[in-house]
């Protein structure tokens, strides 16, 4: 972890790992597991969720300004890390929310232990393999140009525009670090754990799968298949958003979660 980054103010220790956490609002805890893009502390969805929940948004080890010990190299490791974080903060009755890559971690966590979880919300999650060896369930983000990746990920690619000429060196560093870490965790097998699909039946808490329909990385059929492996889970498409509903439709994202938890 870069030295200068250790002082950014919102660092906590989780099982000996320096972890950056955004905490905002009060009420029932909501643990937000960010996608491959990382977590922007200024994202409007945070304040929107914090109107109703105690928002807890850690950067996964290796992302943002969180440290990553050398042994921590798999999504399995990340799921245990976040179980440690739930213990460390003693969070109970948690609404666990994961987007994209974070949805994969959330599912891996939930199949292991749901003692502290009341609801599970997955938005455009990665993590399972549905087709055969020659079927690519998700387009390969590591073989795309930045422009193609943005076009495939967002309904409106301008939602995530990034100009390296005006960005700070720290912001560039975080962006590169996030991309490096998602590569470490998701390079091969690409964006899935071979056994996760056989464990999803263990999830007993009420579960919701949101799906931004403009996602051109993974098709909606993938999201529906994922949902079908979790007993009683609800599937809700979201129009006008791609892979990252929380960025493109923050009000809809928060509203759907509130309605689900109230329901």
């Amino acid at each position: 972890m870069p030295d200068a980054l250790a002082e950014s103010g919102s660092m906590i220790q989780v099982a000996g790992i320096a972890t950056e956490v955004v905490r905002r609002g009060s009420g029932r805890p909501l643990l937000f597991l960010h996608p491959e893009l990382g977590l922007d502390p200024e994202a409007p969805v945070i304040d929107r969720l914090a109107q109703r929940f105690a928002f807890v948004g850690p950067s996964h080890p290796g992302f943002g300004h969180s440290a990553r010990p050398g042994w921590l190299t798999s999504v399995d490791d990340l799921s245990y890390f976040h179980l440690d974080l739930l213990d460390a903060l003693d969070l109970r009755d948690v609404v666990l929310v994961g987007v994209g890559f974070g949805g994969w971690i959330a599912a891996e966590l939930a199949v292991k232990c749901q003692d502290r979880i009341s609801h599970l919300v997955l938005a455009n999650p990665a993590g399972i393999k549905t087709g055969g060896p020659e079927d690519r369930d998700m387009q390969d983000i590591f073989s795309m140009s930045e422009e193609t990746l943005l076009a495939a990920s967002f309904a409106d690619p301008a939602a995530w525009s990034f100009d390296p000429r005006t960005a700070s060196e720290d912001a560039i560093h975080v962006k590169l670090r996030n991309r490096e870490s998602v590569t470490l965790f998701a390079w091969s097998p690409y964006m899935y754990s071979p056994n996760l699909v056989h464990r999803l039946h263990r999830i007993r808490v009420p579960s919701l799968v949101l799906w931004g329909t403009s996602d051109d990385i993974a098709p909606e059929s993938y999201g529906r298949a994922f949902c079908g492996h979790i007993g009683g889970a609800r599937f809700e498409p979201v129009e006008g958003a791609g892979r990252f509903v929380h960025i493109e439709k923050p009000d809809t994202f928060a509203g759907r979660i509130e309605a689900f938890v109230d329901g």
């Binding site: 073989s143 560039i172 991309r179 590569t183």
Partner: peptide
């Protein structure tokens, strides 16, 4: 383009300086 600098090939701190 996607094959020129695969993520992690250059350490991210060094990469950030080169991008800047």
């Amino acid at each position: 383009e996607p094959f020129r600098n695969p993520p992690g090939y250059i350490p991210s701190a060094v990469g950030a300086r080169m991008v800047k």
